[in-house]
Amino acid sequence: MANSSQVQDLLRFLTNDAKLSLTVSMGKIKAFQSAELVTVAAISSTKIDVLKPIFDDEKQAKQVLAAAKRITKKRGAGDDTPASPVKKKKQKFMPGEVLTPAALEESLELPEACRSEEELSHSSVFTNRAPLVLAFAVTLLKYTMPEQPLSSRLSLAQAVVSANSRTKAVSIGLESGKSAEEEGWGEGQPSVRVMGREIKVLRRWGYHADVREEQETQGSVTAVGDEEEKGPPLWGIDLESMKKKESGEVGGRGHGSGGSDLPICTPQSARTYLLKAFETQPKVPEEMHQENESAKKPKIKKETHASRMADKERNLSMLLGALELLFESWVDSLNTKELDRRAWSWYVRVRPDVESGVAGWGGKGIVPLAEILKLRREVGVGEKVKVES
């Protein structure tokens, strides 16, 4: 079985070098794996009769073989580096660097969740709706798909946000026409349901095995999921990016993890969005009672960029803590399907109030964390439940 990096390298070769559409390429990955043709060198050294059964069109088979031979000749025999190599940066976790699986997960770590009920009940965040959906989805997936690594949870959650934003933009008249999903982009790809929405996904075969091997090499004992029992980690596919790329539109090139050009919702962008999205409610300075014209207004201490980012990170920490407490209260009494179904209704109850229509697009409002805590399942006499289904 090919590891995750080999699968992504193969997809890059098929789309960039062999000039196949992404949809066709993704549909052929399993066939290439079964034929043990997961590298450019292996493909270039095979015969056309081996490739023909993989493709319905003999022309495509010849196209792929010719591309593989051309690239192998350029690189020199025996060099099995990716067809579209990405140079690694010397400094760890530099933007654009191809990270190992364990390093990728480490680079995506979110602030530790604050779980102090006393503190949460007196706190709030100031934000717009999209990042709140993202925070809900990322946290929900810890309980409905615990086998998924953080990189996958971020990608899947971002796919939910993107799909919802597209739907909302159409409903208020900011965009028109059919979405990529409605036009059939990604058809045939597997899908999962997150917060009530079907998300097309790309399987990351071998990823857990890569993490496990790396951890064993480093002497780590961190547990990882078993793909055979739970299925492989997933990427959320960015269907709009896929549509734009294959239609030749400007800006349609997807940006996958570690420099991949696969049309996925990248975990890095989702993490950055979370870290920047949750502000403290702006304070309006009170004017001093002026007894005469010489009275002065109070001075406001100017915030630095670092202090603002630290404040946002703290707010994210508290929001994640409130959401964890919410989902943990229900996880033992609801199955994953029902927990996913209710998550959207809980989000609707606490989302910030904004103006309707175009005027409210991107509008921000206050989210009291106490309102999230009120949605928890209350265990006591008669197993009283706060939220009705």
Rank of each mutant, 00 (worst) to 15 (best):
D57V: 09
V224Y: 00
L375I: 08
A68F: 04
R349D: 01
Q189H: 13
D56H: 07
E198A: 15
R75N: 08
H208L: 12
A18H: 02
H289E: 15
V381T: 10
S151H: 05
E147Y: 04
S176F: 08
S165P: 08
K297I: 10
P232V: 06
E383Q: 06
N335Q: 07
S151P: 10
E229F: 01
E227H: 01
L174G: 12
G380P: 10
A169P: 09
L373D: 03
G382M: 14
V221C: 06
A163E: 13
V379E: 12
A68T: 00
L334P: 15
W344K: 08
T81V: 11
T217E: 02
R349S: 07
S257T: 15
G188E: 06
E105S: 06
S257F: 13
D332I: 14
E328M: 10
V379S: 14
L239C: 11
V194Q: 03
T144W: 00
E324P: 01
M145H: 10
A31W: 05
A310S: 12
V221M: 02
N128G: 03
A135I: 09
H122D: 14
T39D: 11
S260K: 11
V98P: 14
K74Q: 09
V381A: 14
S44I: 00
A163N: 07
Q148G: 03
D49P: 12
S247N: 07
A223V: 14
R271H: 13
S356Q: 04
V133I: 08
E240A: 14
L202Y: 13
S116G: 01
A66G: 09
A359M: 13
T144R: 03
G206D: 05
D238S: 08
W235A: 11
K244N: 06
L373R: 05
K74D: 04
S84T: 14
A310D: 05
M309P: 04
L20C: 06
V86Y: 07
D340M: 03
G251K: 02
V358S: 07
E229S: 06
W346H: 00
V161D: 05
W330D: 10
V133N: 04
V170D: 10
Q63T: 03
L134T: 07
S155T: 15
E182I: 09
G360N: 04
